[in-house]
Write a protein that binds this DNA or RNA. Structure first.
Lengths: 237, 237
DNA sequence: AAACAGTGCTGGTCTAGTCCAGATAGGTAA
DNA sequence: TTACCTATCTGGACTAGACCAGCACTGTTT
């Protein structure tokens, strides 16, 4: 057991890794079933599963609940300094974005949201939950919380489009200062359900607090990314 | 199985979570052994282990190889905009930093490092590997790569101290522009060994490329953080 | 006091299955 | 054609054990 390669888990991982690296398993393609793999490697499903979980942690593969394991596509470059929205960012990298609205309503704000938006207790906020895809793959679940005083009637608009553009076109609001908070953690129950992954999958939580061109705190977002879907870039001058 | 709480794994997780939240299991304290827990919850070790792995993914607990499971201390706030070094940052948050040098030598640069430092093929670079602790807990493994032309004789100094301060005091070099690249992934083999965690543990990789006050590219760092040890803050103006 | 050898405890790794629930595709009936 | 049903395939969850390697403590020897 001294040699790493003699451990079944690492050995399986290395073989799969190699196949991926050499393009024999292309991005997005499906791996054989766990039972097939355990047969192929002459071991149990639990051992195979452990190897798969390690590759998942690395970001090489991902799973879709009860559908199978797939090879992860390249990560999206998320540059915090370029204040670009999802749709523009994804398109600029030659990939295809899409958005689905899950829910949108006025509701009482949670304590955490009150704190972020600096609102008094029991305030109402507009909550918009959306899931977003890159090339058809669910990668991001976002909860937006808007201070309702700045956005009268926004719930009447089509929220599948970019909210940033909606702000600009109909409310003459543009993002000014932004504060990001990045936490590596697992996906929340809601996020896991929306992204159709098993609860407890690793994820990246990015909270944004947004100010407008006049320095007023207008909204905040809570983004849950699949951990293998992005890499974050920041240029500090 | 509709109700989440009827799943043994989630149930175990919730019980432990609650104990942690209410301070019955204090930060840094050790959980009972896996076998004890499986007895306590009337289930197998594998099931308990799965629950523990989920809490680990969430960042609530962590393990030390063959020593046991422990409750994670609060995360360190890592603000990319305040160009502060590890020692100052940790101290400012009322916690105790320490550093150990693992290796320091002049060596041929890997292809990746040549690219980062914009050096020609087969260049030599100074590599400094260090591990860092907060309140005694290993949280960070860093590989520094210095362009040797800017740092004659740096290997003679005590590298347990802050390298940033060394740059300033002895080489009159100060950080100017910095580029960060943040990738959620698992720890590299070296990093896992240095942090004494099992390979495949989730981690956060932060690569920094640093320019000096004259805009010259002087060095880069490859940081591997325990994923539950930090949250990253960025203010964009 | 210092070095050493046990010894029990811990997580790490692995076997060999079982049963369940959601996803899928093929076929059948309206 | 369309709607539905059903058999099969997938991963998800779980049981009940096994052996190994490294850690920490204890008691003995030098």
């Amino acid at each position: 057991m001294r040699d790493e390669a003699t451990k079944a888990v690492t050995a399986i991982g290395q073989v799969l890794q190699e196949q991926i690296d050499h393009g024999l398993l292309a991005a997005g393609s499906k791996l054989p079933a766990e039972r097939k793999l355990s047969e192929l490697f002459g071991t149990t499903r639990i051992t195979v599963r452990e190897a798969l979980l390690q590759l998942e942690a690395q970001g090489q593969i991902y799973r879709e609940e009860r559908r199978g394991w797939f090879v992860s596509p390249p990560r999206l470059a998320y540059n915090l300094m370029q204040r670009s929205h999802f749709h523009a960012m994804v398109s600029a990298q030659g990939r295809e974005p899409s958005t689905e609205v899950i829910s949108a309503r006025l509701q009482p704000a949670s304590a955490a949201v009150c704190a972020w938006l600096q609102l008094p207790a029991l305030s109402s906020v507009i909550q918009i939950c959306r899931s977003r895809r890159i090339d058809g793959r669910l990668v991001l679940y976002v909860e937006h919380y808007l201070n309702p005083q700045f956005f009268p009637g926004i719930l009447e608009f089509d929220l599948n489009q970019s909210i940033t553009e909606l702000y600009a076109r109909h409310f003459d609001l543009h993002y000014g200062r932004v504060r990001f908070e990045i936490v590596p953690t697992s996906l929340s129950v809601d996020a896991a359900a929306a992204l159709r992954v098993s609860v407890g999958s690793p994820g990246l939580r990015i909270a944004r607090v947004n100010y407008d061109q006049h320095g007023r705190l207008i909204d905040c977002d809570l983004e849950f990314w699949r951990h293998d879907a992005i890499h974050v870039g920041v240029d500090v001058v």
